[in-house]
Design a protein around this nucleic acid. Structure first.
Ligand SMILES: Nc1nc2c(ncn2[C@H]2C[C@H](O)[C@@H](COP(=O)(O)OP(=O)(O)OP(=O)(O)O)O2)c(=O)[nH]1
Ligand SMILES: [Mg+2]
Ligand SMILES: [Mg+2]
Ligand SMILES: [Zn+2]
Length: 562
DNA sequence: GCCGTTTTCGGCCCGACTGTTTTCAGTCG
């Protein structure tokens, strides 16, 4: 997300944290957190918006809009500075500890002058906390464990890591008895924990699960939470009869659940994970699947990828949701590397792989040779590779497209001359260097690539590496508009380490007339399967089939590339 | 603090689990 928006969201969150510690009313706190979320998912930088426009955003009213404007003008929010000055700076860090919330922090601070994690740790070790009302030996231990966990905290998972955790747990369930829910099911690009709904009886699963648990966090009749391999897993147990509302609940998102429950409320109904209750007479309705819940509420089925309370609920109520693209719509992969650069597949292996998957085409897009790129292809390599591709294409069902992933150099020029690019069937242009340049410089580099007639796709447009490297500074809005103007596609790089563009920008891109291209960036045979992650992101970005280039049959794709 | 074809004031999702409690507050999903 845009740097300045991240800053503003953090300020609003800090405001919420501080007010909460100070004991402010909970709905006011929620308002600040909601507003922060709203800014977080905004594709447009807030300094470009005036107060009136800010107020059109959900959860942002006259008060918070004013604070945002104040921050973008002066770099501070007065009220926040004032509140912050009355509270030790390190106090909010206590909230990061699992099991430590605003009330606890308030008590620790006011009654024991504890204002940092270090101070808390020493107080807990010395058994001083138990003298406080509401604190005992177990709480001291829990706090010490939470401090230990925080030290080992490894952040959010990639979808790949999430799948590794799921694979470890799957053998403990019978095939049809469990569903992965939470952010994984919603197709999110990073995953906080693994959430599972199961119809298995508690007593059958728990012993097996315990055997792989580093630690059981809590355990009851209806839920167990544990850590395995350093990762949190939440399991909810349910009967078949109300598996629908349980899955709906655990899939979320939180904001989606709240909005759905509000809608039920407006109709005199109470929605929870066990069913729908008529408030008037207590009649309970149970649902074995999600579809019947939506139908009961008079709504179209909302695909998990859309469940964020970003407008989908309203559209579902009027049965006006878009039809999202599906895996079956995808006709090929537009970004694959071969052994001619840093991949491991031969051209023939790529073609055979495409046949196995059932693709009509795969674009072979090796890295161009330039300074710092290992094993890049040059003009001569490409000429020979194109001959090889022609030879292979004569005997295989899946067409290999002779493409290239050309570097956008530091000065905005491409690493290969136009004449060479002109001989390629598909040109991806990507930034692989100069990540620390200013927003202006990087944006201009990308714009000049977009305006090159030979460039078909901008690869991984923001350059992020999940958990490793933030996106480079780039004006994505301008990139999207230029892509729309020139008919250049923007990539959804499906690598689970990238997922770039991400959902928010994908949605903006096709709304503004740009087309998306999903590519796996596969370097090895097994990487081709990451297409599913790219599809999830496209769906989260509200893409219909027509918004995505590689849903087109080969003939149409060839026409498009010209 | 935000919001509105039931409201411009008075609501704002609902429940599981833990610890410390003699009946529930706090935190989290
Ligand atoms: N009704 C309701 N449901 C919630 C609330 N918090 C969480 N949930 C539901 C929806 C979430 O998707 C689901 C799982 O919670 P998680 O904390 O694991 O969040 P989620 O998986 O969405 O994101 P994550 O990637 O794990 O951070 O539980 C809440 O406050 N109210
Ligand atoms: Mg989760
Ligand atoms: Mg969870
Ligand atoms: Zn690349």
């Amino acid at each position: 997300m845009h740097g300045i928006n991240r800053e503003v969201a953090a300020q609003l969150r800090l405001m919420g944290d501080l007010l909460e510690i100070l004991g402010e009313e909970s709905f006011k706190i929620r308002a600040y957190y909601r507003a922060a979320d709203s800014v977080d998912r905004l594709e447009k930088p807030v300094p470009e918006m005036d107060e009136a426009e800010l107020r059109t955003l959900p959860g942002i009213g006259v008060n918070i809009a004013g604070k945002i404007v104040e921050y973008t003008r002066t770099g501070v929010i007065h009220e926040l500075e004032e509140i912050a000055s009355s509270v030790p700076a390190t106090l909010v860090e206590l909230l990061d500890l699992e099991g430590v919330g605003p009330k606890t922090v308030h008590t620790l601070w006011k009654r024991m002058h504890i204002d940092s994690v270090e101070a808390l740790e020493s107080a807990a070790k010395n058994r001083r906390l138990r003298s406080l009302r509401g604190f005992g030996a177990k709480k001291e231990e829990a706090i010490l464990r939470a401090i230990g966990r925080r030290r080992r905290d490894t952040g959010r998972m990639t979808r790949l890591e999430a799948e590794a955790v799921i694979a470890r747990l799957a053998p403990f369930f019978s095939e049809t008895s469990f569903t992965i829910a939470g952010s994984y099911r919603r197709g999110a690009s990073t995953i906080g924990d693994i959430d599972i709904v199961t119809t298995e009886p508690v007593e059958r699963v728990t012993p097996k699960i315990r055997s792989v648990a580093d630690e059981v966090l809590d355990e009851g009749d209806r839920r167990i939470s544990l850590r395995t391999g350093g990762r949190r897993v939440d399991i909810r147990f349910t009967g078949q009869g109300n598996a629908g509302t349980m899955l709906l609940y655990l899939t979320g998102s939180q904001q989606f659940n709240i909005r759905m429950r509000e809608i039920a409320l407006e109709r005199g109904l109470k929605l929870n994970e066990y069913g729908v209750t008529e408030r008037e007479n207590g009649t309970i309705h149970s649902f074995p699947d999600e579809a019947s819940v939506f139908s009961f509420l008079g709504m179209a089925f909302i695909p998990p990828e859309l469940r964020e309370d970003h407008g989908e609920i309203k559209l579902a109520l009027s049965h006006a949701l878009p039809t999202l693209l599906t895996a079956a719509d995808v006709k090929g992969d537009l970004h694959v590397h071969s052994s001619w650069s840093d991949g491991s597949m031969s051209i023939e292996q790529i073609a055979r792989l495409g046949e196995e998957i059932g693709y009509e085409y795969i674009a072979c897009t090796d890295h161009s040779a330039s300074l710092g790129v290992a094993h890049g292809v040059d003009r001569e390599d490409l000429r020979r590779q194109q001959q090889e591709i022609e030879r292979i294409n004569r005997k295989t069902e899946c067409a290999v497209l002779a493409g290239v992933e050309v570097d956008i150099l530091g000065d905005g020029n491409l690493a290969l001359p136009d004449a060479v690019l002109g001989d390629c069937e598909l040109v991806i242009a990507s930034v692989h260097s100069g990540f620390n340049q200013s927003e202006d410089v990087i944006t201009r580099r990308l714009l000049s690539a977009i305006h090159n007639d030979h460039v078909d796709i901008i690869g991984h447009p923001t350059g992020r590496l999940l958990g490793k490297r933030m996106p480079y500074a780039v004006d994505v809005e301008r990139i999207i508009d230029a892509a729309a103007d020139t008919g250049t596609a923007l990539e959804i790089n499906a690598s689970p380490y990238r997922l770039d563009l991400d959902d928010i920008y994908v949605r903006r891109a096709h709304k503004h007339g740009a087309i998306l291209a999903i590519g796996t960036d596969a370097h090895h045979r097994e990487d081709a399967a990451v297409m599913r992650h790219g599809i999830a992101i496209a769906r989260r970005g509200w893409c219909a089939k027509s918004d995505v280039l590689n849903t087109r049959p080969l003939k149409d794709l060839r026409e498009w590339t010209g």
